[in-house]
């Protein structure tokens, strides 16, 4: 149950450099603030560096780091009691109205559903890695994603009808 191999500093640095933006932007969906999200990512990687010996190697390193990043972002929210929102759009991406609707619909999702959506479709993690990151079973990931889809579909259809 507790068989681990640890993570190397080089692996962590490579992950940080290649995926910093993805970590920071998904963390911002939790903190609701880009600057604090960045701080959470920095703190999280510092924690990962410190505790790299406790990485068990049972799943991908990235998933383990995601867990720390999300915990750091949630801790930040807990400390600040700021409302959690999905931030202002970075760009309209050619569909400003649709994106605005989706942004609102995402913001209204329970945090875990929203996070699963971003981890799956933005960070491109597979179900197993998402499970590792959120410390839930793979089946729960699928169920959570299905629930998010259903909620978003309903809300967006309501928007269209309105």
């Amino acid at each position: 149950m507790i068989g681990r191999r640890g993570a190397s500093l080089d692996d962590l640095e490579a992950l940080y450099r290649s995926r910093f933006e993805v970590f920071a932007r998904v963390a911002a969906s939790v903190t609701g603030d880009s600057e604090r999200a960045r701080d959470a990512v920095q703190e999280a990687f510092a924690t990962a560096v410190r505790k790299r010996g406790s990485f068990r190697g049972e799943g991908p390193l990235e998933a383990w780091v995601w867990r720390i990043v999300l915990n750091a972002a949630r801790s930040d929210v807990r400390r600040s009691t700021l409302a959690v929102v999905v931030g202002e759009p970075a760009s309209s991406n050619g569909h400003p109205e649709r994106d605005a609707e989706l942004r609102v619909a995402l913001a209204l999702l329970p945090e875990q559903q929203r996070t699963v959506v971003f981890l799956r479709y933005y960070a491109d993690l597979d179900y197993m890695a998402i499970g590792e990151a959120l410390d839930i079973r793979t089946g729960t990931v699928a169920a959570t994603l299905n629930a998010a889809h259903a909620t978003l579909r309903t809300r967006l259809e309501e928007e269209v009808r309105a």
Partner: peptide, 15 residues
């Protein structure tokens, strides 16, 4: 990804 990319806030600062 592109759509979510447009929705998520931009990163502040460099790594």
């Amino acid at each position: 990804r592109a759509r979510l990319d447009g929705i998520l806030p931009q990163t502040v600062g460099e790594p």
